[in-house]
Each structure stands twice: as C-alpha cells, then as structure tokens.
Simulated scan of single mutants.
Amino acid sequence: MNLRVFLADDHPVVLRGARAILEASGIAVVGEARTSDDLLAALESESCDVVVTDFAMPNSTSPDGAEMIRQLRERHPLLPIVVMTMIGNVGILDSLLRAAVLGVVEKTEDMEILPMAVKSAANRRVFISPGLRRQLDAMGKRRGRGTLSAREAEIIRLLASGLTVTEIAQQLDRSLKTISRQKIDAMRKLGLENEAELYAYARENGLT
C-alpha cells in the first residue's frame, strides 16, 4: 500500500514540486494546504501516514512555526511530521527534533531527498538533510555566545514577519515582559543595535 502524505506550504511552486517528486516515487499526496489554519483543519478529517509541512506560513490566523508544530503534535501525537524549511538556526532545528519531528529538509537542497525523508519518518526514523546535519554539527561545536535559543529565534522570526512585541505575546500566549526580554537577549547575543539590523539578520539567516 502506498504511503499517503498531506502537504502544506504557502508557496504554490513548492507544493507542485513536492507533489511531483513524491508521486514519482510512488507516494500518494492526499491533500494540500497553504496556511496553518487549513493544515490543522484538514487533518481533523483527512487521514494520512505522514504530514510534510513548511515551517513558516505567516499568512494564517493560527500560529505557524514552533507553535504550529506544537499544536500538530498535541492533536496528532502519533502522526509523523517532516518539516521543509530555509531556517538554519540551530536552536530552532534542535527544538524541532525535541518536538519529535522525524524529518527536517532544507528547501535549498536537492528536493529528490524528500521521498527519503517521508519514508524514514513513516518508519519512525529521523532524517535530517545533509546540509542541515552539517550545520547542526558545526554549530553544536560552538554553542554559547551568538547562538540563539529556539524561543529567541522564534521571536526574531515573528518580529521580522511584521508582528509587534504585543502581537507576538498574544499569539504565543506569553507575557509582554517575557517577549520583550527574549527580544533584548537575542539582540544582545547577536550584537544587534536596532530594528534595521535585526531585520537584516533575519533575512540573511533564513528567518523570514
């Protein structure tokens, strides 16, 4: 029996490409979503063996990113998740693995590896694309100053997407004081002095 995959990404070109690659490998795509709202709603009624989702889908009323993964895991604890991303921050990558995400695929790598990630996840084996694995290994050796935690990286990503500190606090259900402190801590670690430098860092590190 063919594996059944549900796809989610806010870029139609990525959806078409991922579908073509998966179907060419004999993997059935049973549905698609372009927002976290649609993904969470569809999975309430659509059955699949693996969900393959983008990490950042900002055009949603429901949270994307780490909070979306948390909700997926809470609602569907046994469903294998593969994340496609351009985010290389070691804190976020570590948080995905700690959240029991079984596959992480870098979008800039050869997407022919996507079926491998799906099959590994279906068999409860962790798959990390080669470029991200090298990055994790390299960054793991120099943790500390200049390395953001998963929460700090998520705050930077949401700020760069255009949300205010108040909106982020509401979305993540945290206090304004907590979000402000995490923003300040992140900027201090990175040596950033203003909002313009923060946005530039986010763009250069795939956090937008």
Rank of each mutant, 00 (worst) to 15 (best):
P63T: 09
G140A: 03
G191S: 10
I27D: 07
S161G: 09
P63W: 02
H76R: 06
I87G: 09
I27R: 14
M1T: 12
C48Q: 05
K107R: 08
E112R: 14
V51D: 12
D38Q: 08
A24N: 14
L192S: 09
G31N: 05
F6G: 10
P130E: 06
S120N: 13
K177V: 14
I156V: 10
K189L: 10
D64H: 13
D185A: 09
A18G: 06
D38P: 01
L176A: 14
A66V: 08
Q182G: 04
L39I: 09
I113Q: 15
D137P: 00
M84D: 05
R203S: 03
E46Q: 13
D9V: 05
G191C: 06
M84N: 13
V90P: 12
L3K: 14
L148A: 12
Q171K: 02
Q171E: 01
K177M: 13
S161D: 09
I27K: 11
E197Y: 02
G191N: 06
L3R: 12
R19W: 01
I21V: 15
V105Q: 05
A8N: 05
G162C: 04
R34N: 11
D9K: 11
G103M: 09
F55A: 10
A18K: 08
T35E: 06
M84W: 08
T35S: 14
A186W: 00
